[in-house]
Each structure stands twice: as C-alpha cells, then as structure tokens.
Write a protein that binds this DNA or RNA. Structure first.
Length: 376
DNA sequence: AAACAGACCAACCGCAACTAT
DNA sequence: GATAGTTGCGGTTGGTCTGTT
C-alpha cells in the first residue's frame, strides 16, 4: 500500500503554508472562522453526491498539498466533507489518468484472471489495471457475477477454470511426491469428469482439446505484465449484454465461495491457451474446487457449433483455422489430461488456512485475509 | 406512455492496519 | 506498551439509467 510516510502528521505546517500559498484571504478567513466554529459546535459534514464546486475545491487542495492528510481538507478548505469522503472522491473520480468507460475485453479477461488468483482483493486487482479503481472493478465484478449466478452460469471463463485446476494440481504435486502415481486412470477420469460437471453420457473433456485447438490463440495467463497479453477474443462474449455461456450449469464458481483466495497461479504457467468460440466455451464445465451437485446437461450442448460467421462477427476467430493448430491440439490435450488429474485430487491440506473455508457464502473474507496482508 | 425490473454507479460504513505520540 | 489519529480496504446501500412488458 502506498501509504505516505508522515501521513498521520498534524497539519499545522500545511496550514501555515495554506495561509501563504495564495491570496485567497477570504477563503482563509472563512476556514479559520469555521475552525473556530468547529470548536464551539460540531460541523455537520455533508453527504451524498459531490458538486462540481466541491470537486474544484478538492482538486485545488490536492494540487497545492498533494494527496494524503485527507482529514485536513475540511480544515484547510472549509469543504464540508470528511477525510474519507475526500479520499474516495479523489481516488475514484478526480485523480488524473483515470480511465473512464466500460472495460475493454482485455481488461475483463484480466479481471477474471486476477479474481481467480486473488479473490475479492479489489485494490490489488486495480493495481494491475492502470487507470481503473478498486471500486470500479468491484462494481463490475459484482454485477457481472450476480447476473451470471442468477442465470446459473459459471463465473469464471473456461481458461481461468483450467488454470485454477492446473495450479491446484501443481500445488498438490509440490506437497505430495506420491501424487503423480495415478492408479486407476478410468476412475480418475470419471472423477474428473464428475467434478467438472460431466456425466458419462457426455463426451470426455479430452475431446475438447482438439476442439479448443481448432480456434486457439495464445493467452498468457497472469503474465507479469498483464497488458502484454494479446487482445482476447475470449472476453468479447464476456462483455455486457453478451451471451457467453449458452447453457446453464449447476455449480458455478462463486467468487465468494469458501474456496477463498484460490491457489496462486505462478507466472510460469505460460501454456498456450485456446481461446474458444462461444460454442466451444459452452462445452467446458466449470472447475469448482468444491464441486456442487452433479447435473446432467442437455446433450445438445456439445452439438451446437457457432457458425463461422457468427464466431467471426463476435471477434472469436472461430472461422479461421490457425496454422499451428495441430501443435496446439497436442499441448492442449496434455493440458486437459493434467486437468483431469488436477480435479481428481483435492487434498485437504490445500484448504485455505485463513478460515475462508468455514464461511459458506463467503462475502467477507476480508477480515481474516487482511491479517498480514498489508504492506504489499 | 406507464410500470416494472435489472443494471450500473457513486458513495457510505465498519473494520483493520499503520504511524506518531 | 497504550492510545489516538489517519488511511485503506471490502461490503453494502441507495439513486439513476436503461431496457422490457
């Protein structure tokens, strides 16, 4: 956190500066008078939406004194707003280089990835999205999640679900040297399929690898420099008012499920990920770390293919086969195999130690997570 | 055109961490 | 070490906008 040293200092030096910084004698007098009045009667601070005049006062204050010491704003400018309100207004609306408008597909993908990795750590997520605020990201995620959950759709895109599963598997491998010794392959696959929401009547997810590769484009997952990721056609159907998953699923990965912060995904996970068209995306079941009830999905789920024209129109690239699709098919098939293994093992030792697991419905993992979480 | 529902957004609140005294 | 003040974070709420019936 970028806490400025000495932020908690008293404001007296600044008040002195304020008195000599400009020629706003009237304002100073007013401020002083308000100070005196404050001693006599508590100032009633204003709430609600900010006016342009208030914004101007705050901007002017920051220009002269810099960010921080927000509680001094009311003292120095006479602005009838508490420090918290000033800080919020500045960080969310007034500070320079803020990016306004809806999220780009790249940003939406990144948010999903970051959320999968960090959980509801909006401020940390915002650090990866220049010009975006934690509040903005939070609002976006909450509304989007609410919408998808209401529709019974998985919260995370397939790419992110895959990454979660692989990361879990990787983590497990680190902890258990025996984990690599798969015994019953068929049983493992069945378990994986079940965990992923597949049933025996549905195609094995391994088949998906080939389908994935057919329209694959590489997305580097959680790259150290997030914006280096190529433009993601994936996120397109993720955008507002788009139908991204066509079919409902019973066990969406909730952002506030007891899974808590998901297992860290290491930056070296630079596997090429197939970015699929909506038809293919709909075939991937969510990989909930704590799988919900198993539900038979409609059989047409695997038969519906988005027409190439539709895919192309949606920016999905589904209409054109890429030259490296065979290579991608191989790597993706391997990846899917890993996925199966990952799902099949879910060691209790991997349960978050911060108590999130004991909070069904989640919502406020913040308290426990925050312990030791500061100063990053 | 009116009513309604859902989406979106800004702002508030409570809590916890951090720093200075 | 205790305390007070400040800051930041995450959850929640309420108002407004927009699309649908």
């Amino acid at each position: 956190m970028e806490r400025s040293p000495g932020a908690a200092l008293t404001s007296s030096p600044e008040e002195e500066e304020e008195k000599t910084a400009d020629g706003h004698a009237g304002e100073e007098a007013a401020a002083e008078q308000e100070q005196e009045e404050e001693a006599a009667a508590p100032v009633v601070l204003k709430k609600g939406p900010w006016t342009t005049a208030e914004d101007a006062m705050l901007v002017d204050h920051v220009r002269r004194h810099g960010e921080g010491n927000w509680n001094a704003v009311q003292r120095l400018t006479g602005l009838l707003r508490c420090g918290k309100s000033c800080r919020l207004r500045w960080t969310n609306h007034l500070r320079p280089n803020l990016k306004k408008g809806s999220f780009s597909p790249d940003e939406e993908l990144l948010i999903a990835q970051l959320h999968a990795q960090l959980g509801n750590k909006w401020a940390r997520m915002a650090a990866h999205l220049p010009g975006r605020t934690d509040n903005e990201i939070k609002n976006y995620w909450n509304t989007r999640t609410k919408r998808r959950q209401r529709a019974g759709l998985p919260v995370y895109p397939p790419e992110v679900q895959l990454q979660l599963a692989l990361a879990k598997r990787r983590r497990y491998d680190e902890l258990s040297p025996l984990s690599g010794t798969a015994v019953n392959v068929q049983g493992a696959l069945d378990a994986a399929a079940a965990a992923a929401g597949y049933t025996s009547s549905r195609p094995a997810p391994l088949d998906l690898a080939r389908q994935l590769a057919a329209t694959s484009q590489t997305v580097q997952f959680l790259s150290p420099t997030p914006f280096s990721a190529p433009s993601s056609p994936w996120a397109k159907p993720f955008a507002r008012n788009a139908q991204y998953f066509q079919l409902a699923h019973s066990s969406p990965v909730s952002p506030s499920t007891p899974t808590g912060p998901l297992h860290p995904v290491t930056p070296d996970l630079s596997l090429g990920y197939g970015v699929r068209g909506a038809d293919q995306q709909s075939r991937l079941a969510p990989l909930s770390p704590s799988p919900g009830p198993r539900v038979e999905l409609p059989s047409n789920q695997f038969g519906q293919a988005m027409p190439p024209t539709s895919a192309a129109a949606a920016g999905l690239g589904g209409g054109a086969a890429l030259p490296d699709q065979h290579q991608n098919a191989a790597s993706l098939e391997k990846m899917l195999q890993e996925l199966h293994d990952a799902i099949k093992v879910d060691p209790p030792a991997l349960a978050p130690a911060n108590g999130d697991a004991a909070r069904p419905g989640g919502g406020s993992g913040a308290v426990l997570e925050r312990h030791g979480g500061r100063g990053e």
